[in-house]
């Protein structure tokens, strides 16, 4: 399992600026340099994974300190999925890049350039290709 980010966050180390990410074609990139096309092309190569569009429908960060519940509408069937994440957890928004509920905290803890995640943003998510 990957080590965690330095003190203040328990997010995985691969979200820290400078982390090296391997795309499906073998190319190496820094996490902060990833583009939408990198994810799309990697998913096209993958035999198991496909990318779904997940639209942010609601963000509730009022209940638990440093945590937020993000509700998504996933895929063409618009399935409703809610996830509880730390407010600094970065999602990748189509055509925009890394975004989180609290971009200041993401930048402070991970040094990852980040914008504010908002209702209506379309995030990249994964599903299995042959899910029955």
């Amino acid at each position: 399992a990957p080590s965690s980010a330095p003190s203040g966050s328990s997010l995985p180390a691969y979200f820290i600026k400078g982390s090296i990410i391997q795309l499906a074609d073998g190319e190496l990139k820094h996490v902060e340099d990833l583009k939408t096309e990198d994810f799309i092309q990697s998913a096209e190569i993958s035999s198991e994974l496909k990318i779904d569009s997940s639209t942010v429908e609601r963000i509730d960060d009022s209940h638990t300190h440093n945590f937020a519940i993000v509700q998504f509408s996933v895929g063409e069937h618009r399935a409703q999925v809610s996830v509880e994440v730390q407010v600094e957890y970065p999602f990748f928004v189509f055509g925009q890049g890394w975004s989180s509920c609290c971009p200041d905290r993401t930048t402070q803890l991970l040094e990852l350039p980040c914008t504010k995640l908002s209702v209506g943003d379309v995030c990249i998510s994964l599903t299995l290709k042959n899910l029955r």
């Binding site: 990957p2 995985p12 180390a13 691969y14 979200f15 982390s19 090296i20 990410i21 391997q22 795309l23 499906a24 190496l28 996490v31 990833l34 990198d38 994810f39 990697s42 993958s46 994974l49 990318i51 779904d52 997940s54 998504f72 996933v74 895929g75 069937h77 399935a79 409703q80 999925v81 996830v83 999602f91 990748f92 995030c123 990249i124 998510s125 994964l126 599903t127 299995l128 899910l131």
Partner: peptide
């Protein structure tokens, strides 16, 4: 002396959340 350390390389799909809807039986 600084010992060379291997740099971890993470697969691209680590960065993307799985948001598969729960299958209802």
């Amino acid at each position: 002396n600084v010992e060379p350390r291997s740099v971890p390389v993470f697969p691209w799909h680590s960065l993307v959340p799985f948001l598969a809807p729960t299958q209802s039986d």
